[in-house]
Design a protein around this nucleic acid. Structure first.
Lengths: 191, 191, 191, 191
DNA sequence: AATGAATGAGCATTCATTCAT
DNA sequence: CATGAATGAATGCTCATTCAT
């Protein structure tokens, strides 16, 4: 959908790469970026060498993890936008993004990356997400469901912030989480 | 209510300790907890040994930084609460806390700490803050300025979240930042 | 009965491990346990990382050195006991153990370890040695070559003590050393 | 008797020096030479500065501890030699020296020092001890109580070795310790 | 291609020694 | 003289990255 495919890549190599990404996502998001590469490799059932063949740098691995998440979000956002009326789509997508990042500190940084700086490889997917989010926002605003004066940066900032707020709350009690959504969603609507 | 003084502490020792905390706060908040202790020591103009005499562990230093921040916030919150009417005090304090942590990722974690777990030495100041915030919230709710159904955990979560949102925005342009405040503050008010 | 082989271990890795043990034995016994790990690594022609890969702790390295010595002694003791008549075997083995530890202060501690406390990994080899020594002693006593009232602990204590005595003497002059053996061996015989 | 008195030394300074030596002896012999100087100072109730004023180096402190022990032994040896018949004196003194060093690994090194190497300040007391021991040995040999062929070095070596043997044994059970003495004393006697 | 052993810079921490108070 | 804060070299250990097998 966006990833680069330099060469066909043998079947088992592809499987290794995928597994590595899977595991890295799991481990990094649950235990932070400080986890040694060796541990990731072991958890994925390969040697360190293999890990470094696929991702020449630890940072590259982190980046790949983030990219994958961004791509997933972009895809889901696109689907929602296509299937739902603008106002609904906006709020549904807001929820979705926030829920995606539940309990995953590291993920806030992925979104952060979408807003600013970024190593080359993040450019593409973060551009795509930004584009989709911009569309969602515009749609909701035209439908009169969201304040006119809000720009894309504030939208993204609110996504990151709401995700952060959720991390602060118990994961298993939905009531307080809904109250946070109430506050933010009500605040988003025009006065 | 603020610093503990086990022994009077010689003048120069006190100066070093203070300088070390100053520098550590600055460096840790701007560049993360990964910065080598040696660098902190150098920036403070002392040897590593001195750093470790005052803070027996890197973690202890981090803790001290966080404690100081929490204490500062607690003090400012107390002042605001005493000088202002409940509703105003609530929102003023919300701003204050969020502004304090502007651009300082590490600081969000300090607030996080106020909400959860934490090493013994953080207990006292985070308890105090929680107490003050609880009072602010109750006052504002009695004054009818804030939704009744919000609890202290949600309040703290929103503080952390709003701080996070601000980090996402350019520091020097106040307009978008105000828009974030608008959204959150409006959302906080009763329907 | 001797080395444990968790996994086959690559040829070069095995070589490194062996070399490391060799060097560590040499260095620790001649200059004490205070020698920096880095120096051991350098002397073995490997990086520190390699040392720590094979022995996760400096203490583990020391332990391995001691274990190897204990195993060697156990093996030699076993051979002697098998090939010689009880009385002869006892005194031959006494000599052997003492000679083994000539000039190696650290080694006295290995024997000490055989008598007391000690980290798990030393248990097995020190148990084996104790067993063999007990057998030697019993054999010699039955043959009427050693005082009946002596127990295993005293036997071990005398081994350690005689080794210590030898350290006090010039290494290259055999006469005084033989006189020490005379005193101890004569003292061991029944009145 | 041997100590140097460069200057009169004020009363409290002398007290500090004595206390420091006392504590250092206690701590070093029970916990080894690895104990930090700061801890010694604290246990003696003085600052590190004071310790280093009296003993310009940690090594100097260790040396002083050893010297004091040697002097004590020399004095006791002298008394015994004066009050008792040669043969008795020899064995009594042997016991005394060995018992002195019971359980104090570090002390074996003091004796070792008496036999070999040694930093200047140890020369005097170790010479004195060697002299006294030589006299004891000669006396016992003339009385026919000890083998003629034994020299002073072997005597000293046996002292060190027997001390070492005792360390290996339980401190509170006298029976095995006596058996060690039996072996060594019987071995020492002429055939 | 995969493996995992080797590497070594980097880091937190300790401790003998100095020196301002 | 006494004190204890300051110093910084030294040490054990980790971990991203490379490379022989």
């Amino acid at each position: 959908m966006s990833g680069a495919a330099e060469r066909p890549l043998r079947a088992d190599a592809a499987r290794n790469r995928a597994r590595l990404l899977e595991v890295a996502t799991e481990v990094f998001t649950s235990r932070g970026a400080g986890v040694p590469t060796e541990e990731i490799a072991r958890a994925a059932g390969v040697g360190v060498g293999t890990l470094f063949r696929h991702f020449p740098t630890k940072e590259a691995l982190l980046e790949a993890v983030v990219v994958r998440r961004l791509e997933t979000i972009a895809a889901q956002t696109a689907r929602l936008a296509a299937e739902t009326a603008p106002a609904e789509a906006f709020f549904a997508c807001f929820r979705l993004v926030v829920e995606q990042s539940a309990g995953k500190t590291e993920f806030a940084q992925a979104l952060a990356a979408a807003g600013v700086d970024v190593h080359a490889s993040l450019q593409a997917p973060s551009m795509e997400i930004q584009g989709r989010l911009a569309q969602l926002l515009a749609g909701a605003q035209q439908a009169g469901a969201v304040r006119q004066e809000l720009g894309l940066p504030e939208f993204i900032a609110l996504l990151a912030g709401t995700s952060r707020a959720m991390e602060q709350l118990e994961e298993d009690d939905p009531a307080p989480r809904e109250r946070i959504f109430s506050v933010v969603f009500d605040g988003l609507r025009p006065r």
